[in-house]
Amino acid sequence: MSTTVTQDMSFLHLISSASLLVQLVMLILVMISLLSWWFIFRKLFVIRNEIKKTDDFEDIFWRGADMNALYQRTTSARYDSGSMERIFAAGFSEFNKHPPGSDLEAVMDSTRRAMRATYQREMDYLESHLSFLATVGSVSPYIGLLGTVWGIMNSFRSLSSVTQATIAHVAPGIAEALIATAMGLFAAIPAVVAYNRYASGTDQLATRFESFMEELSNVLQRRAAG
């Protein structure tokens, strides 16, 4: 820190004049923040899309649509299908693979297994990157704090060579150090909010899928028996 009182306190100057470690911390935080925001938007779109498709499918299914037609539609429109449709398709195809007259118990078991496997895969897809958001939310404040502590250490160390210590000697260092904390918080706060929101969203979807699986197996069992 120079002894002049009038420091260039502009944001960019503060960043460029920070020590190497602080700059490194800032770089890491910027990358983390970018990534976490990318995932936040991706998950936002994915989960919103999933909820909409699940709504649509349940609407169609419970209105009494023909299962064969639904299955055809699902398999033909591969990339446009929702998770619930895929669970339905997996179960329905497994159910249909068994020749008529085979043991109902065994058929239903294998159908349920097939649906559960798809369900697991779908949930895995929906919950992907959520753990990253959680990690960012919990860790990035600490990274920012590390940069801040380091910067403040440096700015106080520079005080030792000065006989008359004024706030002007320390202020720029602390300001630049605090930018690191600000960045950490900027990365963490949205990540935590998004994680909580998306976790509850996927939980709701999971319960809907599970109840649908139970209901579908009942319907299929009745169909086989009838």
């Binding site: 936040i40 991706r42 936002l44 779109f45 994915v46 591969r78 895929r86």
Partner: peptide, 20 residues
């Protein structure tokens, strides 16, 4: 066939742009 269902992630590019 079903297993090969790949998850078409909607608007992942848009998400990146929004993040930036």
């Amino acid at each position: 066939v079903l297993r090969n269902f790949s998850h078409s992630e909607p608007k992942s590019l848009l998400a990146g742009v929004l993040a930036v």
